[in-house]
Amino acid sequence: MIRPAWPMVALIASAALAQAPSAPPRPTDDIVVTGTRDTPRKIEQTAWAMTPHRDLYHEPLAQFQTPVCPGVIGMPPEYAAMMIARIRAVAQMAKVRLDREKCKANLLVIFTPGGQAALQDIRNKRPWPLEGIDRAELYDLATDPDLRELAAQPGPVHVWVSTETRGRLGEMLSGRGDGDEPAMLKTANAQSHIYLAARQDIVASVILIDIPALNGLHVRQVADYVAMRGLAQTRPPGQRGKVGTILSLFDKGAIPPLEMTTFDLAYLRAVYGQIPNLPGSAKITQVAYEVKKAAKGE
């Protein structure tokens, strides 16, 4: 069960967010994305830069197929509720299926005094540093190699998106997936030049955020950032980004937007608005079209 974490940490986190320049959003607030008019080339360049990939011409983008259930640990209940409401609103705008309100979280954001130290403690079997979630729950979401990868990530945010490969209709792979018995997809459908035989399903997303990095940030900004990192496999584009994105929220020296931009929502709509076994490259080229639709009010 997801519940607020240790009281002192929660108070520190809420105090940092409370220094934001405007009042926290109400759960019923409409989403109003912001952004400037950018060229399709800049939009596509940024979409490529923020998408971790090996070969997106032959691989799909990962997305949730099961209903999404956001959960928050390390925030007082009132702030956690606002953050969850905002994440749900973003998901709804991106046409992502949502679970009922009382559900087991599969998009989990954890606020900690220090994410790298907490992950090292977890891996070294030291006293459990994450009150509010037990060891079994976390290991359901991330294996030890995942945690090692998480701990190696620099900066105040650590993200793991757990995925599994399935057939285009959701068929499970056969085989154990090890060297003796590699996992294989049994399907009678041939792979075409347009569609792929398999899709990538997001099983769960875990986002750890260092509390000191929240200083001066708005609940809405953090929730939008979490939505962009948790609903898809993304990363901050850094200097390769040519258009505004909420993914710059924790970049050093950056002036991030006050909420997700038109580009951000267009990216999520491109991921979820088409069949899941489409090559990732096709969805990335769709982002500029989604931005254009948003500009027309569609």
Rank of each mutant, 00 (worst) to 15 (best):
L119N: 02
K292G: 15
I12Y: 08
P77T: 14
V68W: 03
I255M: 12
S22L: 14
I211M: 11
S248H: 10
A232T: 09
I246K: 00
R88K: 14
L258P: 06
P21R: 10
V226A: 07
A227Q: 10
L268H: 05
Q153P: 00
Y267C: 10
V203L: 12
G253L: 04
L258W: 11
Q63K: 14
G244P: 04
I246A: 00
K283C: 04
A288N: 06
Y267N: 12
W48P: 14
T66Y: 05
P237C: 03
D210G: 10
G230V: 04
G114Y: 07
P77A: 13
D140A: 10
A118K: 02
R126V: 04
A16Q: 15
V291Y: 00
R26K: 12
A20T: 11
S192A: 10
P127F: 03
I12A: 13
T261L: 03
N215C: 12
P60M: 07
A80G: 12
P4G: 08
D224W: 00
P76D: 10
P24L: 08
V206P: 02
V72L: 11
A151W: 05
L107T: 02
P129M: 04
A197W: 11
L268K: 07
T51F: 01
D121H: 01
S281L: 12
L147T: 00
H158S: 09
V206H: 00
T112I: 06
R41G: 12
V157S: 01
V226Q: 02
I209L: 05
T165M: 13
W128H: 01
D146H: 05
I110M: 00
A152H: 13
A20I: 02
V219K: 02
G179T: 15
K186I: 14
L208F: 03
P21T: 03
T285Y: 15
V203D: 08
L61T: 06
R88M: 13
T234Q: 10
A89W: 07
P129E: 02
P256L: 01
R100F: 05
M8C: 06
E131K: 10
S174C: 13
C69I: 05
